[in-house]
């Protein structure tokens, strides 16, 4: 009887003492945090991709709560839907950011860009890039070893085994920018997704003079400026023998696609053309 009593007393006493201690400590060292941070975090997709520029979703949640307005904050993964939820939690307004997507700007598939040598090191873009310019004559183009594929947390970019060029799965891409940072050749750009995912862009990064880049690859931009001449919206600029279409000015008229002599400008997700006749007439008028 005595033994039982003693053990109950000791255990019970210890339990009460510890409970008081824990309560005291938790009160003493309490971290006061805005409860809305948790709410916002719960509304975020929890991908922790860093595409917003903050360390993880919680970092972004803190930034959202602290910011005066949400104009410059955007969750690329969740898009307007998620941001709307965040805004309603915080009682702020939200601007719609145009959805963006990663674009690989190299068209140098095996048929367009012949291999000149055989790389026999570790199949890793960064390692090959540090060693030399690549298997083809173009020192600007895609190496095809898939650093971007490794970097992508969403499985949205995959190197096509036939063309050896990575392809972006638009439905999966959250434009977090991990592939942009991974590519040693700086080929990948985050561009506006465009209405119905329709985009026009220069599918090349080669800054060599025309004859040199053309020699290395059939579909390289040669800096001929024909696209600038046909563009009615002044959306195209050329720097260092390379054209660039600014996605904020481009109205997707696709005149440059027609004009490009090397097919370096590509259009994506447009319905098949039926306006060829019109275009031809236009040229006649000119």
């Amino acid at each position: 009887m005595n033994t039982i009593l003693i053990s109950i007393l000791i255990l019970g006493g210890t339990g009460i003492f510890l409970a008081v201690l824990i309560y005291y400590v938790s009160e003493k060292f309490k971290v006061i945090e805005d409860p809305r941070i948790d709410e916002v975090e719960a509304a975020l997709p929890a991908a922790n991709c860093g595409g917003c520029g903050f360390p993880g979703c919680r970092g972004f949640a803190v930034a959202c709560v602290e910011a005066d307005s949400l104009d410059h904050l955007n969750c690329t993964v969740g898009g307007i839907e998620t941001m709307g939820k965040v805004a309603s939690i915080l009682g702020k307004t939200v601007v719609e950011h145009a959805p963006t997507v990663a674009v690989v700007r190299c068209g140098g598939t095996c048929e367009h860009r012949p291999r000149m040598n055989e790389y026999d090191g570790v199949k890793h873009c960064f390692i090959a890039h540090n060693l030399y310019s690549g298997e083809t004559g173009c020192s600007w183009g895609c190496l095809g070893f898939g650093d971007c594929e490794l970097a992508c947390d969403f499985g949205a970019i995959k190197v096509n085994p036939v063309t050896k060029i990575p392809e972006v799965d638009e439905d999966k891409c959250t434009s977090c920018g991990a592939c942009v940072r991974a590519c040693p050749k700086n080929l990948i750009e985050i561009r506006k997704k465009g209405p119905k995912s329709r985009r026009v862009y220069v599918n090349c990064r080669n800054k060599e003079k025309g004859h040199i880049s053309r020699k290395a690859c059939n579909v390289s931009c040669i800096g001929c400026k024909k696209c600038i001449k046909v563009c009615p919206h002044e959306a195209i600029t050329i720097a260092e023998n390379l054209a660039f279409i600014h996605d904020d000015k481009c109205k997707l008229c696709r005149k440059c696609v027609e004009a490009c002599p090397t097919n370096a400008i590509v259009e994506l997700n447009f319905p098949p053309r039926k306006i060829k006749v019109e275009n031809a007439e236009l040229q006649h008028v000119e």
């Binding site: 055989e118 790389y119 026999d120 060693l131 298997e135």
Partner: peptide, 8 residues
């Protein structure tokens, strides 16, 4: 026909 390139 193609030379082999590899790191040292």
């Amino acid at each position: 026909d193609k030379l082999i390139i590899s790191p040292a």
